[in-house]
Design a protein around this nucleic acid. Structure first.
Lengths: 107, 107
DNA sequence: TATATATTTGATTATTTGAATATATATAAA
DNA sequence: TTTATATATATTCAAATAATCAAATATATA
C-alpha cells in the first residue's frame, strides 16, 4: 500500500474528526434529513451545518439531493453506520480508562 | 448524547487522521513491534514515528512496554483492527467514485 | 419578498514537520 | 568499577500549513 492510499484513508478519518460532523452522521444514520432538520436536531445555528455538510460531501460520505426549496441529505454507504458502531464499542471499552485519566489530570 | 461525548469521538477519529499513524496501526494490527521495527517498516526517519506514537498513546489507542533498550508497542483493543477493516470496505466501495472525481479535477 | 442552503472571508487556533536536544539503556574499554 | 560510546526512544521548538468559526454575502426556489 502506497503513501497515497495512506493519505486517502487519513483524509477519510479526518472527515469524521469533528464533533458536529459526528453528530450529523449519527442523525443521518437514522435516515435522510434536510439541512434544516439537521440544524434543529443538532442545535446548530447559522451556516455551520452547511459548512460541515460541504466537507462530508467532498469526501463522498454523504450525498445531497434537491427537493424544491430544500436539500435532503443521506449517507452514501450504510457501512458508515457500521463504522460508527464499531467506534462506539471501542469508546465503551476504554471510556473508563480515559475518564480516570482525565481525573488524574485535574489533580 | 452530549457535546462532550461528540468531542470525545471526534478526538478519537482525529487520532487516526494522519497517514503515518494509519500506517503504524496497520503494522501493529499484524502484531506488536518495537519503535525501531515500526520505523523500518514505515520507511520513516528521525523522530516522526515516536511523535505519532505519543499521540496514539495519549488517546489510549496503543500501549508501549519497555523491554530493556527498546519499547514494544501494541494495539490496546483488537476492535481497532475491525475498525480499519470496516473503513477499508468503505474505501473500496467508493474508491472508483473518488478516483474518477480526481480525474475530473485534473482536466 | 421570504425561506433554505451555500459560499466567501478573515481572524483565530490547531496540526504538521524537521531539526535539535534529552534521556535511558546497553556495551566495551580502561 | 568507572568512563566512554553507541543505540533506542522521547521531548522540545519554531516555522509552515491547515482547520475552525462566525459573520457577511450569494444563490435558488417558493
Amino acid at each position: 500500500m502506497n503513501l497515497n492510499m495512506q493519505q486517502f484513508k487519513a483524509d477519510f478519518f479526518k472527515a469524521l474528526a469533528h464533533p458536529l460532523r459526528i453528530k450529523i452522521l449519527e442523525l443521518l444514520a437514522e435516515g435522510e434529513k434536510s439541512v434544516n432538520e439537521l440544524q434543529s436536531l443538532a442545535g446548530s445555528e447559522g451556516s455551520a451545518v452547511s459548512q460541515q455538510l460541504t466537507i462530508l460531501r467532498g469526501k463522498n460520505i454523504v450525498t445531497g439531493t434537491k427537493d424544491g426549496n430544500r436539500v435532503i441529505y443521506s449517507l452514501r454507504d450504510p457501512m458508515i453506520v457500521e463504522l460508527l458502531s464499531v467506534a462506539k464499542q471501542i469508546f465503551n471499552n476504554h471510556l473508563v480508562d480515559t475518564i480516570s485519566m482525565l481525573d488524574q489530570m485535574k489533580e
